[in-house]
Simulated assay, not measured.
Amino acid sequence: MALLRDRGITLGRWTGRPGARLERDSGDPDVARMREAAVAADWTTVRGLLEARPEHQDRTQLLWAVGNTAGVERWIVEVLQKEPESAHALTVAGIRHVSWGWDARTSARAENVSRKQFEVFHSRLRQAEGWLYEAAELEPGWTSPWYVLQITGRGLEIGQVTARRRFEAAVRRDPHHLGAHVQQLQQVCKKWGGSHEEMHAFARESVSRAPGGTPLARLVPDAHIEEWLSLDPGPGAEYMRTREVADSLGQAAEHSYRHPDFERAGPGLELLNSFAMAFSLAGDRASARECFQATEGRVTESPWSYINGSDPVAAYRKHRSAAGR
């Protein structure tokens, strides 16, 4: 397949296969700085990094960098006591309590989670919701609080109607917010009370409404991977190799990374990894090679952790070799 010089990706002549490495932050140095500041309880730096990143640029990764850092739940409460009307502090407190809540619940199946774990989980999510609603009132134009409220809502099982309203609140403020769309895709998937049909329809419609080069096209391979995960190995392999899957992946590729306006930086890297895995499972080696080449050996945890949770890089390497790269 020809290199994609005029189709969104320009790589030059192939000179060999690069080594594979896990790219935690999609190449965004501010995410690493945010994580360091969170560990150091450096609120001034945390706030400064958030203030420097406009809402329309999607602050999702920055928020999770601080939200996933253990210990933030202690010092952010002290910040709130000093700055009770800081929407930044309220949002950080909210997202940290979401992550902290899931720490208590764990990733185990519901039947393997104790009543006490669920009580702690729900308590932390309810606390998060209170802070997030306060942040939304203080900054009515922000998307971030509504994005996090989508996650608390799923954990608290608020139902599809209310969940949809939270998604709509987020996209009224930012119509193509990737994080909000990723959360809504999860909300409408079968395991959370939706269906495969609703999930695929949501992915298709979201991509069709977005401009060319959109990172939202990642929803299409993600939806196929989600259905593949729900099936036993044999039926899953058969599903991924259907003409319907091949056609939808191809159409989404044309509207995203094959488009001249596509940007590989940031969310584009995770999109390329999602397409690489989906095309690999679909048996389309040429398209998989195209995506592997474009990633330049930079591996994102999602979606490869679905294949090998302890070593997503190993999963990436295995499928890259199978694709002939």
Rank of each mutant, 00 (worst) to 15 (best):
L3P: 10
G16F: 05
P18K: 11
A20F: 06
A20H: 03
E23F: 02
R35Q: 10
A41W: 03
T45A: 03
L49F: 06
L49R: 12
R53G: 01
P54W: 13
D58K: 09
T60V: 11
L62M: 04
V66C: 15
N68R: 15
G71C: 05
G71S: 08
V72W: 09
V79I: 11
K82Y: 00
E83S: 05
P84W: 04
P84L: 03
A87Q: 07
T91W: 04
V92A: 07
V92G: 04
V98H: 09
D103F: 00
N112F: 01
Q117P: 12
H122F: 09
L125K: 03
R126C: 01
W131A: 09
Y133V: 13
A136I: 10
L138Y: 04
E139L: 12
W142P: 10
T143W: 00
S144A: 15
I151R: 11
E157S: 12
I158E: 09
T162M: 11
R166E: 01
R173D: 01
P175E: 06
H176D: 15
G179M: 02
A180M: 02
V182S: 05
Q183G: 03
L185R: 14
Q186N: 14
Q186G: 12
Q186T: 05
C189G: 11
W192K: 10
S195Y: 07
S195N: 01
H200A: 06
E205H: 06
R209V: 02
G212M: 14
G212E: 12
A217P: 09
P221V: 08
E227R: 15
G234M: 08
Y239M: 10
Y239E: 12
T242I: 09
D247F: 04
L249W: 04
L249Y: 11
Q251Y: 05
H255A: 15
H259Y: 10
P260N: 02
D261E: 12
D261V: 01
F262V: 09
E263A: 14
A265G: 13
G266H: 11
L269I: 08
E270Q: 15
E270A: 14
M277N: 00
F279G: 01
S280T: 12
L281T: 02
D284F: 03
A286L: 07
Q293I: 04
T295N: 03
R298C: 05
E301P: 00
S302H: 11
W304K: 02
S305W: 13
N308F: 10
V313L: 10
A322S: 15
G324A: 06
R325G: 07
